[in-house]
Amino acid sequence: MTWVNFFGNALDPKVGGIAFFGIFLSLVVFLIGQWLFKITNGFFLCQPLFVGMVLGIFILWLLSKWFGVSLPTFYQAAYKPGGDILFWFLNPATIAFAIPLYRRNDVFKKFWLEIVLSLIVGMVISLVVIYFVAKAAGLNNAMISSMLPQAATTAVAMPISAAVGGNSAVTAMACILNAVLIYALADVLIKVFRLNSDPVGAGLGLGTAGHTVGSAKAVQLGSVQGAMASIAVVVISIVVDIVVPPFASMMHLF
């Protein structure tokens, strides 16, 4: 038995122990990302999650070429069992966001009406604009549907994307790119659009567009922005769940 065969057996779902490869690969690529992020002093394309995604796909692609199978087949057989185990932990991690929200309950209680109204109205306006931008860019309906729920956190956005006829993998990628872009562009955008003139608005905007990275960015602007962003990260997921399915069916996307 050559060691290529041995390695092939280790990746064979029937042999067992298969889930370890996915978990191991995820950890390694993420740690490489963290290391790159550190040595490049926070270059925006070196965000650990983004590096993890690109490098993970690249390594899977290399291995699939080596074993002479297609990339989706190899992904399904070798990575998915382990990836699914890690992915499951997004469920408790998502409900854990209730705790930072509760910690800022003083602010949330005082402004809950403004926050909820702003997020719902802002979300509807954004959806209309995103819909027409995507339409103008010539994307097909499945891709447009995938673009709509990206403001929600990944664990919420993916099932909604699938329910409105989108591709949940594309939505997950959009969520990751959102964070990368906000990390890179937030300072410029805030200056150009004078967003910081209303600290509450800047906070909610950053939390919506940049997820947890956006809320880390907002903390640098001030404690009000930070509090609002961490509220927005949580509340927008619920708003997306309420707003996106009716919007998508209104636009006959599925």
């Binding site: 993420f30 993890g52 796909i57 990836g83 890690l86 990944t154 990751i176």
Partner: peptide, 8 residues
């Protein structure tokens, strides 16, 4: 880190 599998 938990988002890595959804990206991959």
């Amino acid at each position: 880190f938990l988002f890595v599998p959804s990206g991959v």
